[in-house]
Design a protein around this nucleic acid. Sequence first.
RNA 1: GCCACCGUAGCUCAGUGGUAGAGCACACCCUUGGUAAGGGUGAGGUCGAGGGUUCAAUCCCCUUCGGUGGCUCCA
Length: 694
Amino acid sequence: MPKITLPDGSIRQYDAPTTAAHVAADIGAGLAKAALAAKIDGKLCDLAARIDADCALAIVTAKSRDGHVDADALSMIRHSCAHVMAEAIQTLFPGTMLVYGPALETGFYYDMAFADGRAPSADDFTAIEAEMARIIQENRPFTRLDLSLDAGIAKLTTEGSKFKLDNATRAKEGGSTTLSWYATGTLGTHWEDLCRGPHIPATGRIGAFKITSIASSYWKGDETLDRLTRVYGTAFATKPELETYLKQVEEAKKRDHRVLGKQLRLFHIDEMVGQGLVLWTPRGAVVRQELQSFISEALRVQGYQQVFTPHIGKLELYRTSGHFPYYRESQYPPIVDHDQMSKLVTEGCSCGELANRLESGEIEGYLLKPMNCPHHIRIFASEPHSYRDLPVRLAEFGTVYRWEQSGEIGGMTRVRCFTQDDAHLFVREDQVAEELIGCLSLVKLIFATLGMTDYRVRVGLRDPASDKYVGEGSHWDKAEEACRNAARSLGVPFTEEAGEAAFYGPKIDFVVRDVIGRSWQLGTVQVDYNLPIRFDLSYIGADNKEHRPVMIHRAPFGSMERFIGVLIEHFAGAFPLWLAPEQVRVLPISEKSEDYAREVLAAIKALGLRATMDSGNERVQARIRDASEAKIPYLAVVGPRDAQQRVVSIRAFGIDANLGELPLDRFLALLSAEYRTRGGETLKADFANASPRG
RNA sequence: GCCACCGUAGCUCAGUGGUAGAGCACACCCUUGGUAAGGGUGAGGUCGAGGGUUCAAUCCCCUUCGGUGGCUCCA
């Protein structure tokens, strides 16, 4: 007879098998009404699931006792809503086959195979939503049917959906002993779907939902298999929650770096130049320049040496490094010189032949560099090194070119030409750990200065099943252990992920999310035992013998393009003073104050700050609005009164008020301090102390 | 690369098988205004490009380039 332990420690005893729904009803009518599911010994189940043994039971409701939205409940509402959507679509689009419909962090989707040319479009969303609303209105119970594996597979075979049959086969391979269906209503009468569950008690418990988009996918994510249509939606327990979510999405879209980049004129991508090729316009170039100065200063402190290298190199270089053979398809095609080309044409050489002869080395060519390491390696190799010289740290804002798939290119975050804040450290093996930690501290410094706290750390290890890696296992083991240890020293949680390594070594990556929830790798630190071998690098040790250095590749920003794309979204385009393309704008009240305004402007510029004056033919109100839309950190409004007292009247971005006046000298000193300290001291903060009006 | 959708003025977007419109921005004039839009006038488009259907195409069809959302990929 089941003895049921509740979360508060109390125990309820039943004479006969029962269900979570009954227990909830015994506890109270309110709970019974609010109940969506049960957790039996920590496992999420239907409320109607039979309880016939002792267990710990928790009733899942939309909101947990502390008032927070329950993640399990939300995910079940969404999964159940996916069923309702699938039923609605199958009703409106007969012949549609279902594939897979899980809940997501922000909603759900359902992959479907539509009859030829009969896929819905966004125009059909309203009709589908209306049908869904009807199903929800009917408040039909989710009813579970369990069948044995054989009976279940027989049923699916009769029904004839290869997709569902495959799901079942995989469930079997995964160790399932039964298959379950859920009917939305009465078994055998209403719509049903093969599904592991669990589900909420009835369709009426889906409080609010919306179909959000439609896209395509491949069956099992494999591009050689069926192309499916994926319909995305989201659902919440209540309408206000849905509305809040939709508003958030709307707000996030306004932060999109592609939108802000255009609005604030930070960069331009021109179809005449080419896909994925970013043109840095003057304002964006300022941001980049400031960041590069920032990192260059940090590099000098850490003992790096700056180098410059060309954008192309001989194919032989990349055959040696392994880039050309391993990643040929993701590079721009090789460049072959005129003479050689015309000779090949005369010989009637085909494209296929050309490719073969380029690969074999029979024909030499040049490659736009996909990475900077080979050039830096040749700098290191250009002179002999003593163990006393190491580490040698070569840094370059190095521009690289990669042939990304056209469908992947977009904005600044995925491009075909980008500049890494790259460096390669040539170190003795006993220096690896310390140098790795030095690299990580640089990444931390950058993130801290910019206030970017929302990132995760990933240690990328090799995938044992893949053959895309170069080098010996023993070296990989050492390198992976070094990365693990360095990551531990960071003091932040990290995950280890197999298959995320570079082809020459494991790495530590810093990953952030953009406004639409996509993850991007920014900074990266990689340990490499392999390229030194491929290039036969050496240094002379204390024993007067040749030793092999170890390389560390690192780029704390990752690429300037991607980093600034993410940074634009991080700041919603409102850069701090030190990064802002236009830092201060001087607004004379009228022409009468223009002379003084000009003097203020000149004084600000003399400090090395970027300032302008707007003496346009508009009222101050309008000019304040313009400046606010341009997200300029500080406005200095000056009129006759200010001129007479030699003060400026100040507004700061994001504070919707006049902060009051400051003597001109004081204003200049504070501005300068804020700029030089990169926001370590801010005018706003100081001003708030000095003036109660702030 | 694959699938879907989209491409009209500098920007955001309406619109139609009979060669186009709004708001903002821009230019000029009036206004000299003390903290988030003062008023007027004007200029501005080969309706992404190429081909086809049609008496007639910005609109329909095909191709192509570019963008967006996904999928796949990302040394």
